[in-house]
Amino acid sequence: MSGGGTLAAAAPARVGRASRGRWGLAAEGLFWAAWPAAYLAFPDYLPLLSQVAIAALFALSLDLLVGYAGVVTLGQAAFFGLGAYTAGLLAVHGWGEPLSGLLLAAAAAALLGLVTAPLVLRGGDLAGLMVTLGLGLMLYEAANKAAPVTGGADGLQGVEIWPVLGLWRFDLFGRTAFLYSLAVLVLLFLLARLVVSSPFGLALRGIRANARRMHALGTPVRARLVAAYVLAGAYAGAAGALLAQTTQFVSLDVLAFQRSAEGLLMLVLGGLGRLYGGLLGAAAFVVAHQVLSEMTPQFWQFWIGAALVVLAIAGRGGLLGLLAAGRARLLARRGGGGA
């Protein structure tokens, strides 16, 4: 925690606030300033930057579910994929308006969450884990076999997206795609930040830390988890829709198990339960992918695996955890006998 103020005044103020203070604010400012900077500095890499924003949104959805509510899932790609196919199919069948497409995709994913939540949250967390895995694979197979609708393994062709707000058409350089993705990410990030700082968000943290106590406090734990599951589903659906709309193509990959696993990797790479962790992890992941996959693809997969193993053994603070630990050490050294 930051040091300033008398503690008596600080105590009530601490409630529900993520650890911020001057350094935190500066870091936040820096993080968001990096996006327009990247936009100006790397005009040739705008599609890559869009990928970062989309991956960040996906990681954010996982953070809401895994990092805050403590529900481990192996099937988050199901929502991503459903969102992508919803937006893609809408556009293929003549409705290319991006914002409503995005909303409908998120709504479809939320609906899937609502329908599957009772199945996932029914038994113990092990059973739930496997159900998420099974549901994800089911959806993948369904999309694979429903080739007349989804295009199957060839992917969904002919996605045409209208200009954003009727003003900005998707250009060849990916300018609109990037700014559109970034705008959606920023809005949904702000919403997520509001949610996790709310009483609902505090209750989710409580459930993750100790569900037994939450029952004893009178919390309808199941209902809160369903809400978190649905919300995370909607976020993943929105991310999928962004991918479909900005690339104007949907491939089966959107539903692959690999994507669920990579999402978790991004999240733990950046740090769990901190919102920014997923964003940072996604940026690191996408850039690393770009750099490493220029070598052989197997190499890339090998290093993802190695990263997962190391992160799992080393604990889940991630990049942000390292930063926080470093800052704490610095403050402790500087503070000396004070405080």
Partner: peptide, 23 residues
């Protein structure tokens, strides 16, 4: 302080609310 606030929020039936920060 956070834990007790959480309990109070639950007593007041607020833990379904997501549109206002706890603080």
């Amino acid at each position: 302080i956070e834990a007790v606030t959480l309990a109070l929020a639950e007593r007041e039936g607020l833990t379904a609310r997501w549109w206002r920060p706890v603080r």
